[in-house]
Design a protein around this nucleic acid. Structure first.
Lengths: 114, 114
DNA sequence: CCAGAATACCTAGCAGCTCTAGGTAAAGCA
DNA sequence: TGCTTTACCTAGAGCTGCTAGGTATTCTGG
């Protein structure tokens, strides 16, 4: 059972930023990495990712440059910018807070933000 | 600094469901409870909440009935239905999974779903 | 008794987003 | 030669948040 759409949507941005924090990457590879990291439960359509990357670029959280694979196939790499790193940090903080609140409201274990 | 809009949006539904899990409530009170539970960091406009409640009702996750305060002021109470309880459980599960993935991608502590 | 605050509900409509469903093209493989 | 994989892209439908308005009642301070 895949995750609900709302959450997929809201998590897409921080997940992409997290991937890019580990090093420059390109669309096709980002999808693979997300799929691997999630153990296969998240499998994004590429048509969903590219608009997100373009939006992140417009927000100046990432920048792009053209590169090539060994075989000469062109790739558009994305690089995390300083403001993107900041945005990721903020979003992770918010996730932690909301998650803790949700746990608390449901009588779950208390989680304190680090 | 308030949370980013994406996350507010995605978290609104499970938070409302969580409040209702603790007992029937009505719009105005839900906003207060969220504000209190979050220590003031979340302060929803009422115009944002009502459409959410109506949507939850349309999805049949909650049902509503009219009640009165001591002073006779009318209130529209919302009650969590069985399917809403199920939805809350699912969404909490998804939140936990995504949160764990985010932590893992960022080298944070490992979190395992309960 | 009057004004303003608090309580309590509602909707229209814009702006923003996701994500489906298409498309192009090059390289690898059978 | 044709299929699969790699690799990119966009249009537009559909959904949603949330601002900015609105109504009406009760409480409270002066």
């Amino acid at each position: 059972m895949p995750a609900s759409k709302d959450l997929i949507a809201a998590s897409a941005t921080p997940l992409v930023l997290s991937i890019l924090q580990q090093g420059d990457s390109y669309g096709y590879e980002i999808i693979q990495k997300i799929r691997e990291a999630s153990g296969g439960s998240m499998d994004w359509a590429d048509g969903m990712l590219y608009p997100i990357l373009h939006r992140l670029e417009k927000k100046e959280w990432v920048e792009s440059y053209w590169g090539q694979s060994d075989s000469g196939r062109k790739r558009k790499y994305y690089k995390l910018r300083r403001s993107g790193r900041k945005a990721l940090k903020d979003q992770r903080q918010t996730w932690t807070e909301i998650y803790a609140l949700l746990q608390r409201l449901n009588g779950g274990p208390h989680v304190q933000p680090s």
